[in-house]
Amino acid sequence: MTFDQTLYSRRQVLSLGRKTLLVLGIGCLYPVSHYLRAKENQLAVARIASSEMPLKIHWQRLGQTRFWLRQGNDGVEAMWASCTHLGCEVSYDPEQDLWLCPCHGSRFNRDGQPVQGPAVSPLVRAEVKEKDGFLYLHQPAV
């Protein structure tokens, strides 16, 4: 069996490999620069179209976030669902009409006032701004 020596030489393959590495390296610059320019302690912000989430009287979670929304008497209300004890994510249980913390068993009533457990201060509301048919939600700075 004979090999076609002119097809690809070792030198050509290696130079192709080097070029690939170079391209990959330059391609990495974009994510790396994003990573380095980001701020670690920035507060969460969300924007949704008002029509996107029909609001009810009960709290509803905005998917993938810690924002919970409901229709209050004076417009849209938003809750930041972090336990005021050690910051675990609390969730609203409509059956018990309570906010429950999975970590240490704190409970809050529907308006966020502490009912039971280690937490003593109420849940923190998130700021809501309505503009051009969009809701802008801002994580409270505690």
Binding site: P31, V32, Y35, L36, A38, K39, E40, N41
Partner: peptide
């Protein structure tokens, strides 16, 4: 080296790493 930019040794270690994981773009990947 990339982790050095955000990691804080000591009491803030775990907190700084979970922030790195959840907040920073590509942080979890790195």
């Amino acid at each position: 080296v990339l982790l050095l930019f955000y990691y804080q040794p000591g009491d803030r270690a775990f907190a700084s790493l979970s922030e790195l994981n959840s907040v920073l773009p590509y942080g979890g990947f790195v």
